[in-house]
Design a protein around this nucleic acid. Structure first.
Ligand code: MN
Ligand code: MN
Ligand code: MN
Ligand code: MN
Lengths: 220, 220
DNA sequence: TATAAAGTTTAGATTAATCTAAAAAAAATA
DNA sequence: TATTTTTTTTAGATTAATCTAAACTTTATA
């Protein structure tokens, strides 16, 4: 059964919004994510439901079927593998790859993705620290904590970022923060939960709570 | 100005059918190439004409404008670079890459193609021996002759193939013929112009005139 | 050169994907 | 519980890309 480019993007949106609790997703939430209108979403949901990719009842929101979930997971696999390719082989920086991967993830060829994976050495994480599901759709989980929950005086290593948008990643570049960087919390400012940090035991910065919530770390 | 996936495919079709003499191309020829109907072609041609990508006069056929020609050439550049990537880096065989490259050629990112070209070492020819235009759209020309025009007793080296469809390339594989292979003509059969050949001074075969017309060689 | 054949365009539909505006249902709240 | 607010759906259009059938032009040929 052929799934269009657009249908694939809706599946990804539902997957993302459902979270790991796989909760039911509403029309408005999808329309916001997809930058379309609620009316368009209702239309598309009916189509996905006809194709047995989502479970749908009027006014009740949608969940992915097993088929839909599998398809969404494979899209994420492709997206993240292409991001690794772009960074590792073509020397793109982590803030440049997402939009190109959004296009590449729709290329249809099982053989291609199988060979790409092998060429890259079956990476387990993408350039933003997100896990890459394997061919069967299984993710490698690892324990990570938002930096915002670490205590004053602690040192940790950056494992991943929550948001991947370019301005945020460029901001991290400007602070010399990248995957693997050590971050020590000098002081937590009580007033707004901003953090005074030391990056790789060299440069000192202050970051807002919002930034610290978007940095996933492990205790060093 | 945004050019759709479909519009790009029509531009490529016109480019191909016009040949290097850049002759005017008719509606039926395009519909055959694109596997659509003449009516669809007329419709699309009007759209391309509105976008100044083709010159069009009713009942008179179309030619590419400079813009259209530049765009078509860049598509061919992308297609052929991706084919090189698939063969050189992902170990695909030459008969497997065309359909995947048909998808990859539509990925939009100048930076991507620039880096891909560098990663591949700026190859001048693709896995089928077709020249890859440079970033300015210039092709490297080289003199090559169809094997069908070589004389009895001559030895030559395979530089390229005219058709790239999978069954033809698989047939060549079965004859141990690939780019760089030496082909010596033992005998030209007068009746149907089929050729008795020796491949790499080891295996002997008979190929039809049609096959020999699709093999481009240089005298050894 | 008149007629037939080939090639091309127009007319009118269809499908996917989108929109705005209005109606309907569910959820929140007074 | 009645009313208001929010969310979702339906109705009706629009645009890109496609089709079939019919009309029209150009080219070939008798
Ligand atoms: Mn991404
Ligand atoms: Mn990523
Ligand atoms: Mn090709
Ligand atoms: Mn090729």
């Amino acid at each position: 059964m052929l799934i269009t480019h657009t249908e694939e993007n809706y599946l990804k949106a539902v997957y993302k919004l459902a979270g790991k609790e796989k909760k039911s997703v509403g029309t408005n939430a999808i329309s916001k994510q997809m930058k379309t209108t609620a009316a368009s979403v209702t239309d598309m949901i009916k189509r996905l439901s006809d194709k047995q990719l989502v479970n749908y009842e009027r006014y009740r929101g949608v969940t992915l079927t097993n088929d839909g979930n599998r398809h969404a997971t494979q899209l994420i696999r492709k997206h993240r593998l292409w991001e690794v390719f772009l960074v590792e082989k073509l020397n793109f920086r982590w803030e440049q790859v997402h939009d190109i991967a959004e296009q590449l993830e729709h290329i249809k060829s099982e053989n291609l993705i199988h060979r790409l994976d092998a060429f890259l050495g079956s990476p387990r994480f993408d350039p933003h620290g997100d896990p890459i599901p394997n061919a069967e759709g299984k993710f490698m989980l690892r324990s990570q904590t938002p930096l915002s929950e670490m205590s004053e005086g602690s040192s940790s290593i950056l494992l991943g970022v929550k948001e991947h948008d370019t301005p945020f990643l460029e901001y991290l570049n400007s602070l010399n923060i990248k995957l693997g960087t050590e971050i020590r919390i000098l002081e937590k400012i009580k007033f707004d939960n901003s953090l005074k940090i030391v990056v790789d035991e060299s440069s000192q910065s202050v970051i807002s709570e919002k930034v610290s919530q978007n940095l996933f770390v492990r205790r060093k």
